[in-house]
């Protein structure tokens, strides 16, 4: 293939294979995020924490592939790239870099070492904390917006959602819980907060967005 000089890098097979290994690694990160935030996957993926995890996974898989083809040039093929992308978590998370090996009696003692598994766990924890913080702030903002509506409107909407949702578990228990909530000696805002939490957790935040739109239109 004859490419103009400024596009010559597109002809670099190593680059594409590295991208392939990295992309498969990134898919691992996506699966971790989807597994952790099943109810809010879309929103979780739009946070900096999610991108941090994806980039770290992409970079690590790509780096391991580059190391592998430098040590064994015969591994420069798409099958190896795919395999390294799939297998890198197993390799990476079981490697310990020993920084010092004491002699004599202290040999069995705790040695200075970097467990890559621990390094990855720290990055993963940081990413999850960042995602959690963003999602929680978003939920709190949505709650504040919903509190402007009347309690009766929120109660009716929640009951309607419970009645029409086809995948509801124990709808009667939920209706009973709403009745017990309304009988509680707490202010209306507190009752609204509970109902908003129920809608958000049972029907996703999209349902609450719909409620806000619907009632804003009605008031307009």
């Amino acid at each position: 293939m004859n490419l103009p000089p400024y596009l010559a890098w597109l002809d670099n097979q190593t680059l594409w294979l590295t991208m392939l290994a990295g992309s498969v690694g990134a898919v691992w990160a996506l699966s971790e995020i989807i597994g952790e935030f099943r109810a809010e996957t879309g929103r979780a993926l739009r946070t900096s924490g999610a991108w941090l995890l994806v980039i770290v996974n992409f970079g690590a898989a790509a780096l391991i592939f580059l190391l592998a083809i430098n040590l064994a040039p015969a591994a420069r093929n798409w099958l190896s790239a795919l395999f390294i992308g799939l297998a890198w978590p197993t390799v990476f998370r079981n490697v310990t870099l020993k920084l010092a090996q004491p002699l004599g009696e202290t040999k069995d003692a705790e040695t200075a070492a970097i467990r890559l598994e621990q390094v990855y766990a720290n990055v993963q924890k940081l990413a999850l904390q960042l995602i959690n913080s963003v999602l929680t702030r978003q939920r709190a903002r949505l709650l504040a917006e919903t509190l402007r509506f009347d309690l009766e409107e929120i109660v009716n909407y929640t009951r309607r959602m419970i009645a029409i949702s086809p995948q509801q578990q124990k709808p009667d228990d939920k209706l009973t819980w709403i009745d017990s909530l309304l009988e509680r000696d707490i202010d209306d805002d507190a009752k609204k907060t509970y109902l908003v939490a129920l809608v958000m957790n049972d029907f996703t935040r999209g349902a609450l967005d719909d409620f806000i739109k619907e009632h804003k239109n009605r008031r307009a």
């Binding site: 959690n132 929680t136 939920r139 709650l143 907060t193």
Partner: peptide
């Protein structure tokens, strides 16, 4: 984890 969750609470 400590978060700023407003009326929902502050511990996630």
């Amino acid at each position: 984890q400590s978060v700023s969750g407003g009326q929902f609470g502050s511990e996630l």
